[in-house]
Amino acid sequence: MVSDIALMKHHVNVLFKKDDNNRMTFVNEPPNEAAPRIFIGGTQLGNVVRYSNALEENVIKKLERSTSCRFCYRLGRNNHHFKHRPANQQFLDWTCFRVS
């Protein structure tokens, strides 16, 4: 049986085109719009996080600290759907999925 985290990795690889650094570039369906700046897929085994190639390295480092917080850890463990963005990250375009 395939684990939830393996399915989430497959999911993100199907949703978005990526560059050689594993950074998202475009949505993988017409009209191939730009990918969101961040993708967070939460599972009970952990999170799959991918960043846009449009983000600068210093922004990614800050986001890595934020996405390793308890909020994201709990994302895969909550029994309800994610409804709103945390206040400190409202400026970002992001996609968030949960597998339970």
Rank of each mutant, 00 (worst) to 15 (best):
M1K: 14
M1G: 15
V2Y: 12
S3G: 08
S3M: 09
D4C: 07
D4K: 13
I5D: 06
A6E: 15
A6I: 10
L7N: 12
L7D: 03
L7P: 01
M8C: 13
M8P: 02
K9H: 11
H11Y: 12
H11F: 12
V12I: 15
V14N: 04
V14S: 10
V14T: 08
V14M: 09
V14K: 08
L15W: 08
L15G: 03
F16K: 04
F16L: 12
F16P: 01
F16E: 02
K17A: 05
K18V: 06
K18Y: 10
D19H: 11
D20T: 04
N22D: 15
R23S: 06
R23H: 14
R23A: 12
M24Y: 02
T25G: 03
T25S: 13
F26N: 13
F26T: 13
F26V: 09
V27W: 10
V27S: 05
V27N: 09
N28G: 07
P30I: 09
P30C: 09
E33A: 08
E33I: 09
A35E: 10
A35P: 06
A35K: 08
R37P: 02
R37C: 07
R37Q: 11
R37M: 14
R37D: 07
F39Q: 02
F39D: 02
I40K: 11
G41K: 11
G42R: 03
T43G: 05
Q44S: 13
Q44E: 14
L45E: 13
G46N: 03
N47K: 05
V48R: 00
V48Q: 01
V48T: 00
V49K: 07
R50G: 06
Y51I: 02
S52A: 10
N53H: 13
N53A: 15
A54H: 06
N58H: 08
V59T: 07
V59H: 00
I60M: 00
I60G: 00
I60R: 00
I60N: 01
K62Q: 08
L63K: 02
L63Q: 01
E64V: 02
E64I: 04
R65M: 05
R65E: 08
T67D: 03
T67A: 00
S68R: 10
S68Q: 12
R70L: 12
R70W: 04
C72G: 01
Y73G: 05
Y73I: 09
R74I: 02
G76Y: 06
G76S: 10
G76N: 08
G76T: 05
N78G: 04
N78M: 15
N79I: 10
N79D: 13
N79R: 03
N79G: 15
N79Q: 11
H81C: 10
F82D: 06
F82V: 05
F82Y: 15
R85W: 12
R85D: 04
P86G: 07
A87Q: 11
A87E: 14
A87I: 09
A87F: 01
N88H: 13
N88E: 12
Q89P: 00
Q89M: 15
F91D: 15
L92K: 02
W94R: 04
W94E: 04
W94N: 05
T95K: 02
C96Y: 07
C96D: 00
V99M: 15
S100Q: 01
S100E: 12
